[in-house]
Design a protein around this nucleic acid. Structure first.
Lengths: 235, 235
DNA sequence: ACAGTATTTATCCAACGGGTTAATTTCTCC
DNA sequence: GGAGAAATTAACCCGTTGGATAAATACTGT
């Protein structure tokens, strides 16, 4: 309180430091991959000395794993916040797709980290008992929604929830994580607002059309208040 | 011919050497990414001296781009070999999915290279006029097939061929390129024969159900002569 | 105020890694 | 059979990088 606040060479803040290190590491690993990441850059970005990384977290590999676990922890936690109970089945599936899409959009580092880890054939993830125990609630959510949909007559078939989960993730993931190369190949910016709206509409339409048997879903615009995205071209 | 075949310290074979270098580089880059790849390892794997890489191809970046261009060249060439003209539309789409799936399965390095390049936000690909001009024939093939399908009544809607192309690629790509992390998370081997069969069936079913409006497609087994893959679970 | 501990800094280093230089060997063509 | 070009090798260069050491600084309890 009254203690003189004389200018210190540095402030002590172990928790804050640890968080800043992990955040900086997330940036660095997602931007450059594991091998491309530079420990010095992480330190600099965290406003810390390089030695701090080793003091607070561990060596490069442990740092990377900590970042990865944090990323999984975050998405699982947000996933649990999605309540589909009170929605009718088609709307529930739509929400699920929208959530996945928006989460990936809002957290591009998560996509990069996944790519990096898969490039390493999940070598690090395998060592993480923590992540192994963090099951996505989505599989069970999908199972429930699909069951309700079949019972209500909205859905025609009881599709395997794991397959559907992977499909939804895949439709979103591929477009976003590969948007750079795809944009080059198609010669247009796939991350432009219109392109993203069009994509979301297509994905929701595809899945819902398959489940409901009403192909018209494929032509509907999901949520495009003003943008007149061309979802389907004229034949 | 009659020339004495005295033991030489090395043989001359510029073309073969170049190919061996590119093949070794493909292995290395796909296994370790760009930053993780080691020039020395590439040289060793190619049975060459490190200096040869620079002599025949260029520095690490040029080597990487050459590999990437080669990979695109190869898939485009195989894609062109797919003839869908004489097939009825649903079967044509099925073939398209099967081809994509099998190509990715047979060429895992292609998936890795794509991941690596996207991690680099297509920095290298953008410099390649070569790749930019190599358009996939699939988009036009899909456009034609969809048009035929709508005309014949097989398909209910004229979906955008670009979106469908990305969706098919995405369904296959995500499962395979992320099989490592997904396998850890689900606690089972997604690359096991049964799992792969089940996945192919699901993907084809999903897309065809959406296009035809016949959701039962989602339950069909595509090509599972003996494997009794459970495509859908009981409700 | 003092001792002991937790946190942070400054500096160093051995290994590594991409790239280069220069010499050596094979080929080709006259 | 020899000159010049092409292909290949061996050895080295030098900035970078992950990690380590040791000292300095702040905090805590007594």
């Amino acid at each position: 309180m009254a203690k003189a606040k004389r200018t210190l060479k540095w402030q002590r803040d172990p928790e804050g430091m640890r968080l800043r290190i992990l955040e900086a590491a997330k940036q660095e690993f997602s931007a450059h991959g594991l091998a491309g990441a530079r420990v010095d850059r992480i330190a600099a970005k965290a406003g810390a000395n390089k030695r701090m990384l080793y003091y607070h977290v561990g060596n490069k590999d442990e740092l990377y794993l900590a970042v990865l676990e944090g990323a999984y922890d975050k998405i699982r936690s947000e996933e649990r916040g999605l309540d589909l109970e009170h929605l009718d089945p088609p709307e529930a599936i739509r929400r699920l797709i929208e959530f996945t899409w928006n989460y990936f959009l809002r957290n591009p580092e998560f996509l990069s980290l996944l790519q990096t880890e898969n490039l390493a054939r999940a070598k690090h993830l395998k060592r993480s008992t923590k992540v192994k125990s963090m099951h996505s609630p989505f599989v069970e959510m999908i199972r429930t929604v699909v069951r309700r949909g079949v019972e209500s007559g909205d859905f025609q078939v009881a599709v395997d929830p794991v397959q559907l989960y992977i499909s939804i993730a895949g439709l979103c993931f591929f477009y976003l994580s590969n948007s750079a190369t795809l944009s080059v190949i198609f010669g247009r910016d796939l991350l432009a607002k219109d392109a993203k709206d069009e994509r979301l509409a297509h994905m929701a339409g595809l899945v819902l059309a398959a489940l409901t048997g009403r192909s018209e879903e494929l032509l509907k615009i999901v949520k495009a208040p003003k943008s007149r995205a061309a979802v389907a071209q004229t034949v």
